[in-house]
Design a protein around this nucleic acid. Structure first.
Lengths: 298, 298
DNA sequence: AGCGGTGCTTTTTATCATTAAAGACACCAT
DNA sequence: ATGGTGTCTTTAATGATAAAAAGCACCGCT
C-alpha cells in the first residue's frame, strides 16, 4: 500500500496521554504540532479522529474536551522497525559472527525479513556499505557479500596504521596549551587504574581502547578520517567481543603499549611515539588476524 | 507496474538480427540464453513471441525458421535510463558546476526526472555518496546536500596528502626490480615531451596528471586507499575541467613539480621526494581552493 | 543408462501506483 | 494586524505486481 501511519498513531496516543481535564481546551494546531513533533496535517487528522470518537468537540478554533480518554481509545502500534544503527550492528554481527563465506549472494528479501526492516531500507543500507568494501553490487540485480576475509583485515589494519601514525605526528606537534594534553593525562590515569585491577576487570579494556584511539584521532579534524574511523572501530570492536583467547593477557599488554605511546608523546619524542604506535598497531593487526583464523577453523 | 521488459525486448531484437535463413534451425534454449546473455526464461518468452508472429515453428526441440525477420518485427526500446557511471558524472557536474548552496534539500523525485533514472536508483546512488560526505540523510525523509565547500576541499586535500605521502614513502623503499621504476621512466618521458610542446598542448596535462598520481598510488595495494583515490581524482579532475585561469602556467609548474618528485625518487632520496610531494600537493590544494573561490564569486 | 534438452515452479528483484506526511498559501476571526 | 484554520500541492515511503533468474523434475534420444 503506502506509507505507514505510525506517525499518526503515535501522535494520537501522545495527545491522549496529555489530554486536559473534561471541559478544558486544547491549544492551536500549530502549537500541538510543535509539541508532538509532527506536521499540522497529522495534528488535524488526530483532532478529526478524536472528534469522531466523541472525545473532543471542535468548533472553529475551539477544541473542548468532552470526556476523558479511555484505555481502548489508544491506537495499537505495530512493533517498530529496526533502527538504522541497530541494522548496522546486526548486519555486521551476522557477517562477522556467522562467518558468511566471501562471494555469497545476498538475498534482500530474506535479509529484510530477518532484520525486520523494509527491503527498501536494506537496499539503502547495502548501498551505503558499498564504500567500505564489504559488499558489492552485482551486474544484473542483487548484491554480493565480499566478506570479511584475512585480506580485508590486513588492508584495513594497514589503512588504520596510515591514519593513526598521521594522527600521532599531528598530535606531537601540538602546543602545550592544547586540550589534548590534559585529556591524555586523564586517560593515562584510567589505564593505570585498570592495570591495577586487570585480573578481574580485563573486560573493561575494550571501551577504554576505543576511547584511547578516538582521542588520538580526534586531533585530526577531517571528515574522511572520521568516517573511516567509524568503520575501523566498529570492526575492531566486534572482534574484541568474541575473541576470548588470552583476553586478560592481551589486554594487559595493550594497556602497556598504550602507556608507552602516551609516555613518548608527553616527552615530545616523535620518533619514539611513532615507533610505539606502529608496534601497538602491529599487535592489534595480529590479534585481529588470529581471531579470524581461529574463527575460520572452528 | 513492475520491472521493465527491456531485457526481453533487447534479446528479441538481438535474436532477430542473427536469425538463420528460412528453413534453418535454432540451437537449444540454453545455448541461446548464453549467447544472448539472458536467462532461459527470457529466451522462452522470445521464442514464444516469434512463434506467435509466425517467424518460427516450434515443435519440441525443433525450432525452424518459417520466414525472414522484417523491420517491423523489431520491438521498440524505450530510451534507456542513464547508467550508474553517467549518473555519477552528471550529479557531480550539477553539484560542482552550478554551485548548489550547502544545506539545500535534495528532491529525489525532481532529480530522478532530471537525470532520467528511476527514483529508486537515485536513492541508492545518494546512499552510496553518503560516505564521501557530500550528502546527508535528513531525519524524517529526504536528503540534504552538504555541498562542495572550501572546508570540504581543504579536508579532501589534506586526506589526499596523507595517502599520497604514504605512497611516496612506500615507493621509495621498493627494490630496483619493481615494475614501478620503468613505469616512472616512461612517465618522465611523457612529462618532458609535453613540456616541450606546453605552449600549444597544455590541455593534455589533466589526463597525464591523473596517470601520474595513479601510478604513485598504485604501489599501495589497499582497497580503502583505492576507493578514496577514486573520489579524489574525480573531484580534482572536475575542477581542472573548468578552472581555466592561468591554465598554461599552472600546468607547466605542475609538470616541473612532478619531475622534481620523480627525480628525488630515482635518487632514492626519501626526504627530498616527500618534500617535493608535499610542495606539489600544497599547490594542488591552493589551485582547487582558488577555483572554488572564483566560482563562488561569479 | 546417461545426457542434452524442455516444461514447469519457485524465488527474487525492479518498478510503479498509492497513501501518509509535510509544507505552502490564502483566507478568516478576533 | 496577528494568530489561527481551511485547502491544496508536493514529496517520499510502502506494498503490490510483473519480469527475470534459478532450480527441479522429467522426457526422449542415442
Amino acid at each position: 500500500m503506502a506509507r505507514t501511519d505510525t506517525r499518526f498513531r503515535q501522535a494520537h496516543n501522545d495527545l491522549l496521554a496529555t489530554l486536559p481535564a473534561v471541559g478544558g481546551q486544547l491549544p492551536s494546531e500549530v502549537e500541538l504540532a510543535t509539541r508532538l513533533g509532527v506536521s499540522r496535517t497529522v495534528v488535524r487528522a488526530v483532532l478529526a479522529k478524536l472528534a469522531a470518537d466523541g472525545i473532543l468537540q471542535i468548533n472553529g478554533r475551539a477544541k473542548q474536551v468532552l470526556r476523558p480518554a479511555l484505555g481502548k481509545d489508544r491506537l495499537p502500534l505495530r512493533d517498530d522497525y529496526t533502527s538504522r544503527e541497530d541494522l548496522e550492528d546486526r548486519f555486521l554481527d551476522w557477517v562477522l559472527r556467522f562467518d558468511v563465506p566471501a562471494g555469497t549472494a545476498l538475498n534482500v528479501t530474506r535479509l529484510s525479513r530477518d532484520f525486520n526492516v523494509p527491503p527498501h531500507l536494506l537496499q539503502e543500507f547495502l548501498a551505503s556499505l558499498g564504500q567500505s568494501g564489504l559488499v558489492e553490487r552485482r551486474a544484473r540485480g542483487g548484491w554480493r557479500l565480499l566478506g570479511f576475509t584475512p585480506d580485508y583485515a590486513i588492508e584495513l589494519s594497514e589503512f588504520r596504521q596510515v591514519l593513526e601514525v598521521n594522527a600521532i605526528r599531528t598530535l606531537a606537534g601540538l602546543p602545550e596549551s592544547h586540550a589534548v594534553w590534559p585529556a591524555l593525562d586523564a586517560i593515562t590515569d584510567e589505564h593505570l587504574d585498570l592495570l591495577a585491577r586487570i585480573d578481574t576487570d580485563f573486560h573493561d579494556f575494550s571501551p577504554l581502547d576505543g576511547r584511547f584511539h578516538a582521542l588520538i584521532n580526534s586531533v585530526v579534524k577531517n571528515r574522511f578520517v572520521a568516517e573511516f574511523q567509524k568503520v575501523i572501530s566498529l570492526i575492531f570492536h566486534y572482534h574484541y567481543q568474541w575473541d576470548k583467547t588470552m583476553e586478560r593477557h592481551r589486554n594487559e599488554a595493550a594497556i602497556r603499549e598504550h602507556l608507552a605511546i602516551i609516555k613518548a608523546l608527553k616527552a615530545r619524542d616523535l620518533a619514539g611515539a611513532e615507533q610505539a604506535a606502529r608496534t601497538h598497531l602491529a599487535t592489534s593487526k595480529e590479534t585481529l588476524l588470529s581471531s579470524i583464523r581461529v574463527h575460520h577453523h572452528v
